[in-house]
């Protein structure tokens, strides 16, 4: 019974995604069966589309920046959570995780209001980055919490006791031990930011990000196969990045010699 449900669920989940590569290589501009034969035409069209290149560049820039900032914030929060104790710690950490369950549309609209109406700023890639950092940081904290929680806080003290400064104790002991978590956090934040749509749609200025650009293409039925080709590349990229992230997360746990308790994959 349960098994049947699980299989149905997986089909429901992955069938649409499986359609992406099928139509991406289909030689016909209408998305419908029967298939028309094999082509790589849609992929080569991707290469020549400069508007798309622009969008990809924007997205990559935003995703890299988001990954870096979210991970930096995540490191600070996770380290504070694991090693320091201060009044109201639980409550504060709870609030930090809140964006995880906040609807993105709310984040998008409220940020739009704050940036445009309250602060009177121009929208740009940076407004998207700010919002993406907001939604990626909880993920980053969740991943890094795992990495930091397994650390014995006495280790940094031991390094200091043996003559190192506070910073070099962090660099020599803590950093190598949480590095897998950091890599994993960078990759996941990058992936989330790269294909995020709602916030980007509200907050991009004149330069759309890739998901926003794709959405724009949908209005032209003739462009659909190109979207499929792009989608195929994105799915492949996401899977690869998430796999690498998971690999590093597990390696981190193995290195610290603790049992695996969940994760994203």
């Amino acid at each position: 019974m349960l098994r049947g449900y699980a299989v149905l669920y997986l089909i429901f989940l992955y069938a649409p995604i499986a359609l992406l590569p099928i139509f991406a290589f289909n030689d016909g501009s209408i998305i419908a069966f029967p298939l028309q034969g094999f082509t790589t035409r849609w992929f080569s069209e991707l290469w020549t589309n400069s508007a798309l290149h622009n969008a990809v560049q924007n997205s990559l820039f935003i995703a890299v920046m988001t990954a870096v900032f979210a991970t930096l914030l995540g490191i600070c929060a996770a380290r504070a959570g694991a090693m320091a104790s201060f009044p109201g710690k639980q409550g504060i950490l709870g609030f930090v995780m809140l964006p995880l369950v906040l609807p993105e549309i709310i984040v998008a609209v409220s940020l739009l209001i704050v940036l445009r109406q309250v602060l009177g700023l121009q929208l740009s890639n940076w407004s998207v980055i700010a919002a993406h950092v907001l939604i990626c940081t909880p993920f980053s904290i969740a991943i890094l919490n795992g990495a930091f929680q397994n650390l014995d806080p006495a280790m940094e003290e031991a390094a200091m006791d043996l003559g190192e400064s506070r910073w070099s104790a962090f660099r020599l002991i803590t950093l190598p031990l949480v590095m897998p978590g950091i890599v994993s956090s960078l990759l996941i934040s990058f992936t989330i930011s790269l294909d995020e749509f709602i916030i980007a749609f509200f907050l991009t200025g004149t330069n759309p990000t890739m998901p926003v650009y794709i959405w724009g293409l949908l209005r032209f039925p003739g462009q659909l196969p190109v979207v499929m080709a792009l989608g195929t590349i994105l799915v492949a990229l996401s899977i690869i990045l998430l796999t690498i992230a998971e690999y590093y997360r597990r390696r981190g746990l193995a290195r610290a010699g603790v049992a695996d308790t969940g994760g994203f994959l």
Binding site: D152, A154, M155, E157, A158, A159, M160, D161, L162, G163, E164, S165, I173, P176, L177, R255, A256, G257
Partner: peptide
């Protein structure tokens, strides 16, 4: 005088061995 300049060394309860 900070910990890293004192003529003391410590064996921690958890041993704090560097696992890597």
């Amino acid at each position: 005088v900070p910990a890293n300049q004192r003529p003391t060394n410590m064996v921690f309860q958890s041993y704090a061995i560097f696992p890597h």
